[in-house]
């Protein structure tokens, strides 16, 4: 483990948004490292910068200042096509609102990232079914999103996130739209993926119960990290 570079390492990462004539400091010189195999939850009130950090870590946005090393490589100067390829090969996204394609069955939804990765059609289907099996949805593989419950839809989204065998899964409020039971299922799935496959999970949430599934909790306020500590035994209990 010690020989592998950290999956994510950001130094003095700063993001300033310009809204009208006002400049908003969303992230103020953040230093943060995610080691391979970590399960980190980011907490904080809305507007604290946690989502901004996730977008920067997920190559969906570029920082105003600071450095970002992804698996030891500085990606500051990467072109947007390079970043698209990185997202495709190394990242998996899970969103609060699932973002499944409507009128498209679970298999085809899970196949989507593989299309952009250039996986041949036959193999796509096989791997999509494997991923759906991993999230326990083999039975509804040919169902369309509107035939699935919220929890099932989110598990399809997780299958989609892990199908390209990513090193990092970014989950943005993945349980925000789910009931407690579905929420627990989804979080158990994330723990399994983290523990059994060694996938690094970066979770943004504002629910302490959800955050407790992680091994480490980072708390944001006003664009700064205000605490960064492992989840203690006492908290879990």
């Amino acid at each position: 483990m010690s020989t592998r570079p950290p999956v994510v390492r950001v130094e003095k990462l700063t993001k300033i948004y310009t809204v009208g004539e006002q400049k908003v400091l969303a992230l103020d010189q953040i230093d943060l490292t995610l080691e391979a195999g970590e399960f980190v939850a980011v907490m904080g009130p809305s507007g604290s910068g946690k989502s901004t950090l996730m977008h920067l870590v997920g190559f969906l946005d570029r920082p105003t200042a600071g450095t970002y090393l992804f698996e030891g490589t500085n990606v500051n100067d990467f072109s947007s096509d390079d970043l698209a390829d990185l997202r495709c090969q190394h990242l998996g996204f899970v969103f609060q609102s699932y973002n499944l394609l409507s009128r498209t069955n679970a298999i085809e939804n899970v196949e989507l990232p593989m299309i952009y990765a250039g996986v041949p059609e036959g193999e796509r289907k096989k791997r999509a079914l494997e991923a759906l099996d991993a999230v326990g949805l083999t039975a509804v593989a040919d169902h369309q999103p509107n035939q699935l419950s919220g929890g099932q839809q989110q598990r399809v989204a997780i299958a989609r996130a892990l199908v390209n065998d990513p090193s990092l899964i970014l989950a943005d409020e993945p349980t925000g739209a789910l009931d407690t039971k579905s929420s627990d299922d989804v979080m158990r799935l994330f723990r399994e993926l983290n523990e059994q496959r060694g996938i690094t999970v970066f979770l943004v949430t504002h629910e302490p119960d959800v955050a407790r599934n992680a091994k480490r909790i980072v708390t944001f306020r006003d664009g700064h990290i205000v605490s960064d500590e492992p989840v203690g035994q006492a908290v879990i209990r």
Partner: peptide
């Protein structure tokens, strides 16, 4: 819009 956003997020290049 959301579909396009998703496609970009899962790794579609803008030319694609």
């Amino acid at each position: 819009t959301r579909e396009i956003g998703l496609r970009i997020a899962v790794g579609a290049r803008s030319l694609t």
